[in-house]
Structure formats: structure tokens, C-alpha cells
């Protein structure tokens, strides 16, 4: 057993080892660990933030979707109303047009009838005058008997 120089040399070696560990081993590894821990913490925080934002976005999109659906319902209702109106208008217009056409046709018919009647009357009058002339063998003085002739035409 020999205590002394062995002890001193071991102690010197020990201090050298500790110095080496404190300078070249501990700091770089601790720095790496701490940096990684920070990065992971940041990553987790970002993930949490992203999750919250995703929830908010989902809620917003739900709201938007609901609004859009409501608006679409409104638009459809309006369109249906408008279609009904248009159909009504068209029906009304068609009816009035038909009535107008019927009225025009009736008026025309009446005109034709009255014209035919006038023509008939004139022709009958002329026939009557011709008949009378034949009968009287003389010419009827149109001016002298204008009133008589008009009276006759009215009576026909």
C-alpha cells in the first residue's frame, strides 16, 4: 500500500477530466437539449394555436354555410313568388288580349253586318227606286223626291 503520488496523480487527472467535461461535453449537449425543448414547446404551442384556429374557422364556415343556406332559401322563395307573379301576369295579359281580340272581332263582325245591311239597304232602295221608275214610267226626280227616298231607305 502506497498512498501519496498515486493519489495526487489521480486527483490531477480527475480535475482535468472535470474541466474537459465542463468545457467540451456538458455545454454543447445541454444547449442541444434545451434548444430542442424550446422548439418542442413552441411546436406544441403552435399546434394548440392551430387547433383553436381550426375550431374557429370551422365555426365561422358553419355560420357562413347557414347564412348561405338561409339566403338561398330566401332567393328560392322570392323566385317562386316572382314566377307565380309572372304566371299570373301572363294569364291576365292573355285573358285581356283574348278579350280584346274577341271584342275587335265582334266589332268587326258588327261593322261587317252593318255594312252589309247598308249595302243591302242601298241595293234594296235602288231596286225599289228602279221598281218605282218602272212602275211610273218616268224618271223620278232625285232632288224632288230626295226626302221621300231617304224616308224610304230608313224604313227598309
Amino acid at each position: 500500500m502506497n498512498i501519496g503520488l498515486t493519489l495526487v496523480s489521480q486527483a490531477v487527472a480527475f480535475f482535468l477530466f472535470v474541466w474537459f467535461a465542463a468545457k467540451f461535453v456538458w455545454p454543447p449537449l445541454m444547449r442541444a437539449i434545451e434548444t430542442r425543448q424550446k422548439q418542442m414547446a413552441e411546436g406544441l404551442a403552435a399546434a394548440e394555436k392551430g387547433r383553436v384556429e381550426l375550431q374557429q374557422a370551422a365555426r365561422r364556415s358553419d355560420e357562413e354555410l347557414k347564412g348561405a343556406r338561409d339566403r338561398a332559401q330566401d332567393i328560392i322563395a322570392q323566385a317562386e313568388k316572382r314566377a307565380a307573379e309572372i304566371v299570373d301576369e301572363a294569364r291576365t295579359a292573355a285573358r285581356s288580349e283574348g278579350e280584346r281580340l274577341v271584342a275587335g272581332a265582334q266589332a268587326e263582325i258588327e261593322q261587317s253586318v252593318s255594312r252589309a245591311r247598308e249595302t243591302l239597304r242601298d241595293e234594296v232602295a235602288a231596286l225599289a227606286v228602279a221598281g218605282a221608275e218602272q212602275i211610273l214610267r218616268r224618271e223620278v226626280d232625285r232632288t224632288a223626291h230626295a226626302e221621300l227616298l231617304a224616308q224610304l231607305r230608313r224604313d227598309l
Partner: peptide, 15 residues
């Protein structure tokens, strides 16, 4: 022992 530790420290990465 220290060389083995140093081996890890040299290539230490935060990734």
C-alpha cells in the same frame, strides 16, 4: 469515457 461523451457532444444537434 469522456471520449465517448465527447463523441455525442461534437455532433450534438437540437434537431
Amino acid at each position: 469515457g469522456l471520449w465517448l461523451l465527447r463523441l455525442a457532444a461534437v455532433r450534438a444537434t437540437a434537431g
